[in-house]
Design a protein around this nucleic acid. Sequence first.
DNA 1: TTAATACATCGTAATATTGCGATACAAAAT
DNA 2: ATTTTGTATCGCAATATTACGATGTATTAA
Lengths: 109, 109
Amino acid sequence: MGLTKTEIFTQEQNHLAVMLKAMAHPARIAILQQIIKANTCICGDLVEELGLAQATISQHLKELKTAGIIQGTIEGVSVCYCINPTVWNELQKQLSAFFSTYELKTNCC
Amino acid sequence: MGLTKTEIFTQEQNHLAVMLKAMAHPARIAILQQIIKANTCICGDLVEELGLAQATISQHLKELKTAGIIQGTIEGVSVCYCINPTVWNELQKQLSAFFSTYELKTNCC
DNA sequence: TTAATACATCGTAATATTGCGATACAAAAT
DNA sequence: ATTTTGTATCGCAATATTACGATGTATTAA
């Protein structure tokens, strides 16, 4: 075992899980915050901002990119990363909808 | 290695990561959806609803409970799980704030 | 008391994640 | 052409996750 049984879940459930997983790490949250904060896309100053090795940051960036949350374009020698607006808004909408399905019912445990 | 360097991140970043991680699995998303759908708190019919073994469901429930997202109270022989409204709303607010920090700037890559 | 029911926990196998040094690679500067 | 600079990838060690059978535990039923 050790691998998720994706077959038994819906596409939506699996997809949402993948997106949440991509964000479910403090380093990746920090990276996203940095990318958002530096409204002009930043590159590898992330290595200096966060206290992680270059290889590690690069790996985290890859995971965010694979999930589609960020995108990177080569900018001369360096690479410019920024939020993928489409995916970001889609995820925001999906999460908002998910959280909204719950409303406090009186008689609960 | 293999363990996250939590020391170098803020409490908020670590906490948000923990919450997202708790939700970042299709089975746990399905569990939350079921708990929300059955507005009266449900118990271990989750085992029948999802196609996972009882031990596995119990383990996933524990993770959600540890994160504080759900709470369980003993109801005779069975256990009744439901959303923890405080934590749920808190997380909703935090995520909403996080997503709102991004707004499309014109000149991006 | 004993059996049944509903969960929780233990132990374990398979796999995934995290972090980093070392190294490869590609564009720009010399 | 060679060096420099910024990133990506490889390979590895340490640890975490996922899933489940087996077993423990606590409450109700008989």
